[in-house]
Design a protein around this nucleic acid. Structure first.
Length: 175
DNA sequence: AGCAAGATCGGT
DNA sequence: CCGATCTTGCTG
């Protein structure tokens, strides 16, 4: 019997970000564009977890910028860095627990700033709901291989030794 | 109001 | 290694 890929629902995003990260690897980031439906395999993600995490934007608590991270999982957190690169994040976990996953790479496009530019993701996607949006969502990949490696996160030297060294970057095997 | 820093990237 | 480019949040 033919089965089509199904949009990932709310429950998937309500888990702890450290559980969501490996299960997101291999899944499809799906976009509905003028050229039709595009599916990109997610291959590289990074975890930001709690106010204690000195690498996270939430380290200084709830501010206008970080308010989105305190939302229920399933929303997008999209922000501009260095005045030119849009960063694509997925909020995870329950309300009032600031967590997010930075999408660092797809199988076909490496680099968080490069992939948003190529896919046309910008500030208009901020706070978009992945479980309801008609232009962007996540689909499970039945043929995904579960293998991955972990590495320290990139570009967070300011976070101090304890947080700098957390192996919270998750990279799919066979890259 | 002013300022320093930043979850990056592309070119020397 | 360095500059681009602009938002954020802290300081005063």
């Amino acid at each position: 019997m033919a089965t089509s890929n199904q949009r990932t629902g709310k429950d998937f995003f309500l888990k702890d970000v450290l559980d969501v990260a490996p299960s997101l690897l291999g899944s499809y980031l799906v976009m509905d564009t003028k050229e039709g439906i595009q599916r990109h395999v997610i291959s590289d993600v990074e975890v930001y977890r709690g106010e204690e995490d000195q690498a996270s934007h939430a380290r200084r608590g709830k501010t206008p910028r970080t308010r989105i991270m305190y939302s229920q999982g399933g929303l997008l957190y999209v922000y501009l860095i260095y005045g030119m690169h849009w960063m694509l994040n997925i909020v995870t976990g329950p309300v009032e627990m600031p967590q997010a996953l930075l999408i660092r790479g797809l199988k076909t496009i490496q680099g968080p700033g490069r992939l948003t530019r190529q896919l046309g993701i910008n500030g208009s996607f901020h706070e978009e709901d992945l479980t309801r949006s008609h232009r962007i969502w996540i689909e499970a990949n039945a043929s995904a291989n579960g293998g991955y490696v972990t590495r320290p996160r990139v570009g967070i030297d300011y976070a101090g030794e304890k947080w700098r060294n957390k192996p919270w970057r998750f990279i799919l095997d066979d890259q």
